[in-house]
Design a binder for these strands. Structure first.
Length: 268
DNA sequence: TACTCTGTTGAATA
DNA sequence: TTATTCAACAGAGT
């Protein structure tokens, strides 16, 4: 379920491989996760290099290796990173495995909506440098958010929150959590928001992003009680505030869960 | 068995 | 130009 917080969670799983040499690489060139990427370049470059570190930004991850090698990873909908024993035989959906002396770094993704990118150079790849401002950074101001929403003022709020160029890292459940916390209905048009509502939305984004990352860093069980998160997967889920059954409908192309009492629809 | 649903995103279409 | 729809894919659920 890789949204911003989970991406960070998975990224750290390869931390234990930092400082060690990659001595072999496993991959299948035909797999969709390598679309647009030269697998022969990966095969040629990586063996002999050392994993130096990694970063996550939104749903994107970038792994840095010695010899000016960079690997960009996106988890799509079902991707995950893990480590395994050094002799691990590749499983059906293990698309990329980096073998080290004492462990194997594994990228797997059954549905292959994820992606692997390769870059060679002293500086990070262009696409990484051009990523939008992170939601947890100082640069993500209320003003910046309001300007983005104004640019898409015909879109539902739910649809807008899913646009990665404005809200990098948000996915379906985080968007629902944010709207519930800000007491805004998913179908509200972005152009209709009052200044106070914009403030609530901005604060909810900051809060949900920070808290999700913080609690996930301690494992999935640490997710805070009282979040919509715990209810939204269940068809009979209820609003954590007062126990009303949640509404579930497609908004902005995605299944959305919200409470009609706390998040009333706008009068037209 | 057959059909529906799913945490993403980018290409095609309106 | 921007918003919506659909396909890419695989597995789980009904």
């Amino acid at each position: 379920m890789p949204e911003l917080a989970e991406v960070e969670y998975y990224r750290k799983r390869w931390d234990c491989g930092i400082g060690a040499v990659i001595h072999a690489v496993h991959l299948h060139p035909a797999k969709r996760v390598f679309r647009g990427t030269s697998t022969s370049a990966i095969r040629k470059a990586l063996p002999g290099s050392v994993l130096l570190g990694s970063e996550a930004q939104g749903k994107q991850m970038l792994f840095r290796f010695s010899n000016g090698i960079w690997l960009g990873l996106h988890l799509g909908m079902t991707g995950e990173l893990r480590t395994a024993k050094p002799g691990l035989p590749p499983g059906k959906h293990d698309h990329l495995i980096l073998y080290q002396e004492t462990k194997a770094l594994v990228f797997s993704d059954p549905r292959q909506f994820g992606r692997v990118r390769f870059h060679l150079g002293a500086a990070p790849p262009r696409w990484w440098l051009d990523l939008p401002v992170p939601l947890t950074s100082k640069q993500f101001t209320r003003k910046l958010m309001a300007a983005f929403l104004q640019h898409h003022n015909k879109l539902s709020l739910k649809g807008a929150l899913l646009l990665q160029e404005g809200f990098p890292g948000l996915g379906n459940w985080m968007a629902d959590e944010i709207l519930w916390r800000a007491r805004l209905a998913p179908r509200t048009l972005t152009g209709q928001l009052t200044s106070a509502e914009l403030g609530n939305l901005w604060r909810a984004i900051r809060f949900v992003c920070r808290e999700a990352i913080r609690s996930l860093s301690r494992g999935y069980s640490a997710f805070p009680a009282g979040w919509l998160f715990h209810q939204r997967w269940d068809r009979r889920g209820r609003c954590p505030r007062h126990g009303r059954p949640l509404s579930r409908e497609t908004v902005g192309g995605r299944t959305s869960a919200w409470c009609r009492a706390c998040q009333p629809a706008r009068k037209q």
